[in-house]
Computed example of a mutant assay.
Amino acid sequence: MRALLSLTMMLAASQLAAQSHDDHQHQTSPEQHDPHAGHDMAEPAKPASPGPAMETPPPPAAGSGPPRAADAIWGAEAMRASRKELRRTHGDFPVFWFQGDRLEAQVREGADVYLWDIQGYYGGPTTRLWFKSEGEGTFGSAPEDAEVQALYAKAFAPFWDVQAGIRHDIAGPDTTHAVIGVQGLTPYMFEIDAALFLSHRGDLTARIEGEIDQRITQRLILQPRIEANLSAQDIAPLGIGAGLDQIEIGARLRYEIAREFAPYIGIEQSWRTGRSADFVRARGEDPSTTSFVVGLRFWF
């Protein structure tokens, strides 16, 4: 009897275990029914504030006070002199500047020569009165070529002026020219000075100068330079031929003892071309000249 009871209990336990296993096999998780289960289904973030237009507007009293804070404390009358001084020292005020670009002696085959090239201006950042002078001559004699210019300049772009005025030749045939040109600084720091000259006799000539400072050290500077002179016609009294009259290419190495004071040495090659070369040969001179130069550059 006991054996029969034990067998019955074992069969019941076995059926319960089998049913529990079947229930476990047929039970499914939420992930099996919902393909999106396990993914973040949170709502997208709300956009940020749309900007100042939706913010709280300023109060009506804003901006009703004096336009300058100092006026609110000291009064507009007390601050007027201070503002006038500020405009004078930081605005469109005139200054004077003068530069001796080239004051030099040129040692060449034959007669040695002296040369000067100076310029300066008086005025503000956008309008100025320029003056320029250059010339040369053989040591021990009067200048062979010399000129002075007076020009009015107006800025038309950053670092660029348009210039107009007169030029008068004070050596050689007495000649007065009308002048128009540009002067300024190109990208990569090339300084350019270009001008057209129309003489009172109707002769049209042009000059283009370019130079750049190549800093070797804080005080030692190499300055390559090129100058070209052109003419629209032959000018026999001046020995100038039509086309490219003369071209000069040189380099000067200067040492700035002070920023405003720098002696230099250098070399320059000059060519007269075309009809100008013919005029030079007719005088018994060489149209090609090599010069060793020593000089001084200063400004204040």
Rank of each mutant, 00 (worst) to 15 (best):
V107Y: 11
G250L: 08
Q214H: 08
G38N: 07
A282Y: 02
E285V: 04
Q218I: 01
W160S: 00
L115Q: 09
R207W: 05
A155G: 09
P67M: 00
R108C: 02
R252S: 03
E85D: 11
K84I: 02
R83E: 10
L238V: 03
A76H: 04
A61G: 04
Q214S: 05
G140R: 06
G120Q: 08
M79L: 06
T8D: 15
V148I: 09
G241Y: 07
T217Y: 11
A157H: 03
N229R: 10
F300H: 08
N229W: 09
G165D: 14
T176F: 05
A251N: 01
L230C: 05
A53N: 12
A42I: 06
P59M: 07
Q233A: 14
G123C: 12
D169H: 01
R272S: 11
P287N: 07
A206R: 02
Q27M: 11
P143Q: 05
N229C: 06
D71C: 03
Q25G: 06
V293Y: 01
V280A: 13
A62E: 10
P44C: 07
A153F: 12
R2A: 13
E211M: 03
G63S: 02
Q19Y: 04
S20Q: 15
T127L: 03
M189F: 15
T176V: 12
D174I: 03
L244Y: 07
D193M: 00
A3F: 07
A76I: 02
V107C: 03
R281I: 06
